[in-house]
Design a binder for these strands. Structure first.
Lengths: 349, 349
DNA sequence: CTGTTAGCGCCTTCAC
DNA sequence: GTGAAGGCGCTAACAG
């Protein structure tokens, strides 16, 4: 609707209802010491005028807005979207509103600075607390609580939610090994994230446990994006002796691997086995359906929100680091190496 | 980081810089009447203290926050995500910040009421204007401008961005007809949206133009979701005389159709041709790759933002309704009916 | 029960 | 070029 219509304030409501602003405020905040008839009358006026109290003014007076902030690195990537779903479900249950903050990355030199800017912008202003997904920053100066989903390696002194990345990676690589794969490539995630580091450890530990060599050339550094997964896969598959299987640190990277393999004329799983990590919804729909490690991302968002609300409402005060158990999900992107064409290849060599 | 740390205010900055708050305010807003040395000093103090002005207080005084709001029906659905990408790119270019508002749906009886709540909550408060995606509400009482992406049928008196839905649907169905399909099913979208209505019109007009009958049973009402697409497809394919092709009003529905077809043992495109609408990124990755109508969703978000910013900055005052041209994208989910098994079926009947 | 009085943190005249 | 005062819309004491 058009311009010029000045927003109606609590004053307008008070005037037309014939009461004082404080009475309206009381009704707004459901204080009990208001006469039923007055309450009704004010409620009616509020409804009729379509009045909504100004978030800005409200948050300036009371230290509670019932709004929580969510800061994510990139809207649109499946991981973040899943976290958001969990957060959204949680706030619904707990009676909060959600504000997602995002911004022009180019105005800030580094992601970390950008994040810090948002946190201080939101926190102690219009938001009671903030959830930050895969943070690059390691500390925040703010009066309101912050919880990190998939935190940085520099363990921040804020609460966090993370999954059992090491165990998950172990399970994924063991699965591959049990299928007879000996040359297993690895594409890591964003190096600054705990999850990435732990998955690399898991990969290497699985190899060692099976008595396999940990070869440098089979392990390349990615950043959890599809594009990088694609590039890294090309690199791995162009090796003189390419891997027969690739463990990608997340599903996005795994999709990149599949794309690269297809482009190079390799069939999955016949010529190359691929395992991802995350179990984003797309993993089930991809072709072939992706074998991956479920880390219950939605739950991570949900639990993170619960922790945050506990902090906000004073039910908790310590920093907590919640761990979520992962689970291997076997689908169609892997098969025993014996039947793969690489085996045939070995014969010819 | 921890609790208790009271947020630092402009007063703190003023005190430690040895100037008055108004001087700090001037520096903050880049007013020119500040002595260079004072400016430098204040800037330094601000940086050192890590001060960020309170969004709440700021937006209460000045009618400009450089933040625009985005309200979408469901975070996570590909259409909304694409719009968000476009909006995000636009605000980056124009130096704005973005706040996405979402909330507990159960607290509000209808989507429309919820939307109105957000608009009045954000607008005239912490946001200079709002973009609303596929709105259910038809009007908003607010002082700040609003632009709708894919607006409601009740043409709202706010600016909007929409694509040439009729032409797009026409092209899609003509494509199917040119391949020999005569029984073409249609799954509509959310009935309250202009886009859905126009796509239905396009479907019917294409049929009529080709001299084909418009049969009631071949046209079912969906709501742009994958689940409903799935249900509708089962319905269509269970008909005594099922269609040989289905035009789904959007890609999500089309994915549902593909899923349903597979579950019923039909192969795509051999046994059933499918066309979608939107050309979301997933359409290219699906199996088979989906033939669809591109409506350049990201551009819709980008252009919508440009319109909004023009409104905010006073460069425009009229409501504008921007149209984006659609384009048919042929991929692998359709094939001429002559080779399909339905043709064989006709022989046996 | 309800109205009056102070500000919350900031920006904007208006003096100096 | 800079400071002081007023008020944005609202809530939280206090009075009555």
């Amino acid at each position: 609707m058009g311009r010029g219509k000045k927003a109606i304030t609590i004053q307008d409501v008070a005037r037309t209802a014939g009461v004082s602003v404080s009475t309206v405020s009381r009704v707004l905040n459901d204080k009990d010491d208001v006469a039923p008839e007055t309450y009704e009358k004010v409620r009616d006026v509020i409804r009729e005028m379509g009045y909504t109290s100004s978030l800005a003014a409200r948050s300036m007076r009371s230290r509670r807005t019932n709004v929580i902030g969510l800061i994510m690195p990139d809207v649109g990537d499946p991981f973040s979207v899943q976290v958001m779903r969990g957060v959204n479900r949680a706030i619904t249950e707990m009676g909060y509103d959600l504000i997602l903050y995002t911004s022009s990355s180019h105005r800030w030199p580094t992601t970390a600075e950008r994040e810090r800017h948002y946190v201080s912008l939101l926190n102690g202003s219009i938001v009671d607390g903030t959830i930050i997904v895969t943070p690059a920053a390691t500390s925040f100066s703010t009066s309101a609580p912050v919880v990190a989903i998939d935190p940085n390696t520099i363990s921040p002194d804020c609460s966090s939610v993370i999954s059992t990345n090491h165990a998950g990676a172990l399970a994924a690589v063991e699965h591959l090994i049990s299928q007879g794969h000996r040359r297993i490539g690895f594409i890591s995630g964003r190096p600054d994230l705990q999850s990435s580091q732990r998955r690399l450890d898991g990969y290497q530990d699985a190899l060692r446990a099976a008595g396999l060599p940990v070869e440098q050339e089979l392990s390349v550094t990615g950043d959890y994006t599809r594009e990088t997964g694609f590039r890294c896969a090309r690199e791995l598959l162009s090796l003189p002796e390419p891997p027969t299987a690739v463990f990608a640190a997340n599903d996005q990277s795994a999709f990149g691997v599949i794309e690269a393999a297809e482009e190079m004329g390799l069939r999955i799983p016949d010529d190359l086995s691929v395992v991802g990590f995350d179990n984003v919804p797309e993993a089930a729909y991809s072709n072939p359906a992706l074998t991956t490690v479920d880390q219950f991302i939605e739950s991570m968002g949900h639990i993170g929100t619960e922790i945050l609300v506990d902090l906000i409402e004073g039910r908790a005060s310590d920093v907590t680091h919640h761990k979520i158990a992962t689970q291997l999900v076997v689908r169609d992107s892997c098969r025993p190496v014996a039947h793969s064409s690489s085996a045939a290849q070995q014969v010819t060599v």
